[in-house]
Design a protein around this nucleic acid. Structure first.
Lengths: 148, 148
DNA sequence: AAAGCAATTGAAATTCATTATCACTATCAC
DNA sequence: GTGATAGTGATAATGAATTTCAATTGCTTT
């Protein structure tokens, strides 16, 4: 199943590159592959460290460049937790979701509430806006950390 | 009324400084005063430019420092629109609110929906979290920009 | 008033994430 | 092959924010 998903994501990337008249290079393949292995939100720097272990010669500028391509291709999504570092998560095969973060331990879980989504759209329309997307970050204390 | 509000905010700041054994300086007063004049979200850099017109000798580090103090004092709030620059808005006398931004013209309006707030709290509790705060950014196209 | 002392400041240096530059290399169409 | 073009890594550059530090300011105690 993971194999299947990866294959599909790689196909999407290949098609994206072809459509844009860009080339499929070993670096791009490697970075995508490593990105797909991580299920967590990852920063460009962290991904660079991982990728470097497989190819010592890769440059971090390339990692930044490929992450931008992955976002364009609809495979990655930027997530901003406000700590000054942009993080990236899988977009393909993942429903839209928001984030619930524990301010004590840093644990983050993905959440969705269709009712909230509906209300957001209605709220925007109330002001004449046509809502295209949104970000919602919930911060609190998780069950474990409340115990302490 | 503005006078009244300003006086109160200045009092709050003075009390905050006293409580922390910090000093009320001309620079701090000036920066707070200039911050209060702006009703819009403002970046440290923009505020620095404004303040500089009234006191050429002020340093930008001081502006950053005072903005941080204002946040601690509950007078300012950080807002992150994800463009790499932190902005600040008035906190005191302003209800909690979220932001609805037009991606075409950049216009931002403040919105609140009590129903959404309630659902957010319920959503967090569903996962065992005790919600302390949240950020919600809605992006879309405003009425005027839809016309074009 | 003088002295002591901690808080404050501005300028400059520094950090950190990200982007741009540039010389060189790899790849594609012909 | 031969050019044109895309891609690369190293490095420099950027921009926001923070830290450093010597000098100054403002209180407190004499």
């Amino acid at each position: 199943m993971t194999e299947q998903t990866q294959k599909t994501e790689k196909q999407i990337f290949a098609e994206f590159l072809a459509r844009k008249n860009l080339r499929e290079t070993s670096q791009r393949d490697l970075i995508l592959d490593e990105f797909l292995r991580r299920e967590q939100h990852i920063s460009a720097e962290e991904l660079y460290d991982e990728v470097k272990q497989r190819d010592r010669t890769i440059g971090q500028a390339t990692v930044y460049r490929v992450l931008k391509l992955l976002c364009e291709a609809g495979l990655a999504r930027e997530v901003n937790f406000g700590d000054g570092t942009m993080r990236y998560e899988h977009e393909f095969g993942h429903e839209h979701h928001d984030h619930l973060t524990c301010t004590a331990c840093g644990k983050t879980i993905e959440v969705v509430d269709p009712a909230i989504e509906t209300l957001q759209k209605a709220l925007a329309e109330k002001y004449g806006f046509c809502l295209s997307n949104h970000e919602m970050y919930l911060y609190g204390t998780c069950a474990e950390c409340q115990g302490r």
